[in-house]
Design a protein around this nucleic acid. Structure first.
Lengths: 223, 223
DNA sequence: CGCGGCGTTGACGCATTTCAATCCTCGTGG
DNA sequence: CCACGAGGATTGAAATGCGTCAACGCCGCG
């Protein structure tokens, strides 16, 4: 989960071959898990294509999705010796894997990379603060509204008053587990938004925000 | 929010005077706020004495406490240009303030410090994953149990089967806002635990876990 | 054409919140 | 020393938002 500006930016014109040397590509099929929660953490990952979901599990199977990651996002910072989360592909995804050892060689060679990684972690921390507020204090309506706005912030939204089209590549189950709700509640609230003409649902994955500003207002709990 | 091993460890025998030069001490009175959510972020902080609470607010006043910090903990990583959280003293607290500019001089002088900061951020990220699971997926009972166990992990617990004494320096309101519950629910559940002989409540701030293991079991949702 | 997986909708139940009353506990002043 | 008051904590009763259970719909695939 790191945003834009892949880590390569801190290496700039420097030897990209060195970076390639330390990493290996891999492809993960839809639904395939490639990080096991609690497993010893040997690698960092950068998502180069497709999307992945990160999550933690309770012993009885309850699941909390802690984030979705896509192209350019960085994975594995939330890990010391073992991964604090599991990860699996959402649709087929391609990744760059950086073994910790290799990463260390890279940070020695390019000291600014270390700073870049910290920035990445900081950005992630800031996002998580907001998500904790969502999970701890927002109503179901507010959560779904926040989710929609979040999705449209991913895009570089042109005009906040104009309708925005967006697609939700993840199934309802994932949305629910991300928002700390059930699929039924998510479904009901999307239907309610539709009835209120706040959104239109073209297909299961394709939604248009008709009144982004109002949804944004709901998201902040200012109804 | 950084644990043990203050950042000084990465400087070791090196010039501590340099570090002192870049920082300034400050004391914050009980309940006084010293970081304003959303304000431009100019400083890092290290808690040197007492405790502080970190939180985010919704416009209508709902509050989510995102963490408690105490001696040695690091504050301000979850901030790029502006703070992603507010902070205020819980009881009177003393802090070390490091302006970003000074911190940058330090990381240039002691490159390992940058790595240390990343570690700190990673540790924090891992904790937050767990907290998101708590807020999104655990029941009230499980949340309170988790909170108790968390508190006792802060101590270096000797024997997990023996009773553990711990004090909760924060008011119920803070516990509730930390767990995403109401004070009433927190209170009721503590009473229930008492009735079940899982804990004993010596005073408002002083609680003994009579059966740490059982509480731990509840915390993981394995009841 | 029919089956299976996901999504929606409805009815009902329950955990937690909300509202409200009472209880501590501790500091203050008579 | 005790009465008193105020703020937080506890306890109880009622309300409610969301979850659970269950039926149904939609759609793609064999």
């Amino acid at each position: 989960m790191g945003r834009r500006l892949s880590i390569c930016n801190s290496i700039d014109d420097c030897d990209l071959a060195v970076l390639a040397n330390e990493s290996s590509r891999m492809t993960v099929a839809d639904g395939r898990s490639f990080i096991e929660e609690g497993a010893p953490a040997h690698d960092f990952f950068v998502v180069t294509g497709g999307r992945v979901k990160l999550f933690t599990l309770l012993p009885d199977g309850r699941r909390q999705i802690t984030g979705f990651a896509e192209g350019g996002d960085f994975l594995g910072l939330a890990a010391s010796t073992s991964y604090a989360f599991g990860a699996e592909a959402l649709g087929s995804a391609t990744l760059c894997r950086f073994p910790h050892a290799g990463m260390q060689r890279l940070t020695e060679r390019f000291p600014s990379l270390e700073h870049r990684l910290r920035e990445e972690a900081s950005r992630e921390l800031a996002l998580m603060q907001a998500r904790m507020t969502l999970l701890g204090r927002k109503t179901a309506r507010e959560r779904v509204a926040t989710f929609l706005i979040e999705r449209c912030t991913h895009l570089d939204r042109p005009d906040p008053t104009r309708p925005v089209e967006l697609d939700l590549p993840m199934p309802r189950t994932d949305i629910a587990d991300y928002l700390g709700l059930t699929i039924e509640t998510v479904s009901r609230i999307l239907s309610a938004f539709k009835k209120e003409k706040l959104i239109s649902i073209r297909s299961i994955t394709h939604i248009t925000l008709l009144m982004p500003e109002r949804i944004s207002t709901i998201a902040e709990g200012m109804e």
